[in-house]
Design a binder for these strands. Structure first.
Lengths: 200, 200
DNA sequence: GGGGGAAACTTGTCAGTGGCAAGATTGCGC
DNA sequence: GCGCAATCTTGCCACTGACAAGTTTCCCCC
């Protein structure tokens, strides 16, 4: 009741973005309704369009925010690559709405300037972690290792969010992710222990 | 021109499913329109509902088909786990529409009996690959290895489909996937080469 | 300090969509 | 060949995104 006004003029843009995050957590980014956002913010149905142009514009703004947040998160764990991977998964779980938008470029204008810039910053944060590695191999190997690490972290995060992982994995994403990510660095078995799964 | 009839009575169900695959490849599973499918099939806008109940029902049917197709694909590469991983990625790329539906359970009725059965068959195909491993470690390690392998294959596939991978990865998903997946089995560097990436 | 212009927001409208209800048509088994 | 059930259609409603045009408010500059 205290802050019911301030709408006709106020920070509608920010209000809409946070409302969008809530809505996406509830129904997913594709089912997001601009009119529902307007209702949540107490404004008319056309107000969101004024700030973001269209739905893709709003999601582009969210994607940009998300990439920036991811960049910040990764930078903080920059000295420890395993923990950076854990942080990646943790980001996906705790900022699910951001994550689900960021990697669905068909939902927003991926060529948006803000998005490209923020994505670049996130990429730089990842790269700086690689550069700090105790290297020694060929530079081509760096690319492959990086791709493998990104893939395993991203894959685990995605499967977690999709609810595809078996119950036995537990309910602590950081712990579970750490155990899985460690497999990339350590030789786990005698022979080639590649590809296998459970899927419930 | 030869098969323009057979609609008023015919295999509308199959026709709609294949039309749905086409449409999903074009606009994604979320933007799928039942009325557009009806138009493509030359029937009225309410015809799809009769066969699938609603949109979630149609996507559930697609998901079930997809899991069965994945199970078949994995079974064929069952003796070679690396190739099974490559087959997983290849499945995602060549059957993109199926893959994008299968791992978006919020879009369909995930408790559909057909879906659960097909998902079980796909899981069994994956497990049988693990069982054939030259094992030797603790059983708990098997779970982790399996999860790691699934994660890296799924993550690579997802990033590929999202167009998030840098150009230098090339345009051959099987080759690129094989190179990345191999990193899970072989010790690539001196120290712990974990987590790193490029993202553009 | 007030006038003017731009930014922020509203109202109204249109085409498209999913889902439901009620009706029409066809095939098929008895 | 009759009737019933499956298949498909027509019609409708609530909702959505996008656009156009109007209204209100702020604020900058004279």
């Amino acid at each position: 009741m205290t802050d019911t006004r301030a709408y006709h003029h106020g920070d509608l843009r920010r209000t809409l973005l946070t409302a969008a995050l809530e809505a996406i957590e509830e129904v997913g980014p594709a089912a997001l309704s601009l009119r529902d956002l307007a209702r949540r913010a107490g404004v008319s149905h056309a107000a969101p369009a004024h700030h973001f142009g269209d739905k893709a514009g709003l999601l582009a703004a969210l994607a940009a925010q998300g990439f920036d947040l991811l960049a910040q998160t990764l930078t903080e764990a920059d000295d420890d690559l395993l923990e950076a991977g854990v942080a990646y998964v943790d980001f996906a779980v705790t900022h699910r709405a951001y994550f689900e938008v960021m990697f669905r470029p068909e939902l927003y204008r991926a060529d948006d300037a803000e998005v490209i810039a923020a994505r670049g910053r996130a990429g730089a944060a990842l790269r700086s972690g690689v550069a700090a590695l105790p290297t020694g191999g060929a530079p081509a190997d760096t690319d492959r290792d990086a791709l493998a690490a990104w893939s395993i972290a991203h894959g685990f995060a995605t499967l977690w969010l999709a609810g595809a992982l078996p119950d036995r994995v537990g309910d602590n994403p950081r712990e579970a992710a750490r155990a899985v990510l460690r497999r990339l660095a350590t030789r786990p078995r005698a022979s080639p222990p590649l590809m296998a799964s459970i899927m419930e």
